[in-house]
Design a binder for these strands. Structure first.
Lengths: 216, 216
DNA sequence: ATTATCTATAGATCTATAGATAATGC
DNA sequence: ATTATCTATAGATCTATAGATAATGC
């Protein structure tokens, strides 16, 4: 009966000041990331203060620095953890060369929308922050570029017959249109979060294939 | 020869401090809007200070308040002046009932992309700021809603034959997809501003019609 | 001893206002 | 007299660090 599983597993360190929000049981680092995700997406990154994040996570402002070096570090981690699953899926799909490319592209689109719209917050909106062009986020940008490359590879695989002639410009264009659709749609979703995400994701994937010029 | 057209038309009021950027000749109000457009889109709205805007416009921070009540007023004016031309076009196109709806939808999409990507800055990115949900921007939001309504009306007009059965959910969905494409594409454009905008706008309009399910 | 937290605060902003100033207009 | 600008600044932040404190661990 020592250290019961449910109540308080007697934690080390000075206790938190009360009159802060009740501890959710999640580890503090994670709690900070959740708080940051909500505030960054709802109120905006630059408009969110370190105090707001910390306090929403149930601790005092200074305590945040025990876990993160600052706001930028929070954002970097959110960005990378959001793009990582999409990127992993893209890598896998690119290699499954025995299946038709159009089908694989459809799957990537669908999963991407699900991942970006499925969570409680609109993390995809963070991709578009001006701050993301800063040096601190180079790794995220590289990941996103690789994801875009995955889209392109799959798109390229959908070309058939007469289209096989080299058409780099056209390919880049279709790539941008598809990529733009995915990210745009995820922003639009914000205005109608009640709609079931699964169907929305499939409809978006259908639309992406139609843009790509592949019959569905 | 009094008050020559080119040099300095002898303006009233205390002269500006020098060591500020050279006066461009444009009226100060306009200059502030240009400066704000650049800074808001490149560095972000919340991250841009009133000082930065004023100084880029060639005046001291406090002088800005002679023309605008603050940052929010600048943003409101930028937003409304950006959406206004699109809205006007949409109204006109909706009324031209003698022309095929698909054709009119294409035109609206094309113009929208041109308007949003054509200028020197990516003003469309401002549409997506979290701050825009504030009370101050209600008028802009109303305008944008009306624009979306225009898209919907045109989309609705493209339905033919068997599809004429009432399908509200499907219509809203296609509406969101098309709207999402336009805004998403405009964000993607940011990463490759060298590409000629005219062709890009037409390709986007083509893609929108394909999403809508209308043959091009 | 180690750890997680707290309190307190220096230093650096940023906004918005008050009031002075240097032009032109009449 | 009117206008457009300036300088100066009060008050309100916000970030990041220093150092104290209150738990558990051994």
């Amino acid at each position: 009966m020592t250290g019961g599983t449910d109540d308080g597993p007697r934690r080390v360190g000075r206790p938190r000041a009360d009159q802060l929000r009740p501890a959710s049981g999640r580890p503090p680092r994670e709690e900070l990331l959740y708080a940051a995700a909500e505030l960054f997406t709802v109120k905006g990154y630059a408009a969110t203060t370190t105090r707001a994040v910390a306090e929403r996570a149930g601790m005092r402002q200074a305590t945040m620095y025990h876990y993160f070096g600052g706001k930028e570090e929070l954002l970097a981690e959110l960005l990378e953890s959001t793009v990582a699953p999409s990127l992993e899926l893209a890598r896998r799909l690119v290699q499954e060369t025995d299946r038709p490319a159009g089908r694989r592209l459809w799957e990537l689109c669908r999963s991407d929308v699900l991942l970006l719209c499925g969570g409680p917050y609109n993390l995809g909106a963070l991709y578009l922050l001006p701050e993301v062009s800063g040096a601190r986020f180079a790794r995220f940008r590289r990941m996103r570029q690789e994801l875009r490359g995955g889209y392109r590879e799959l798109l390229d695989g959908t070309r058939v017959g007469a289209e096989l002639a080299d058409d780099r410009a056209g390919l880049v264009l279709r790539n941008d249109l598809v990529f733009g659709l995915i990210e745009g749609v995820m922003l639009i979703h914000r205005s109608d979060p009640a709609r079931p995400v699964a169907a929305f994701a499939e409809a978006t994937a259908d639309a992406a294939l139609r843009i790509a010029g592949v019959g569905v």
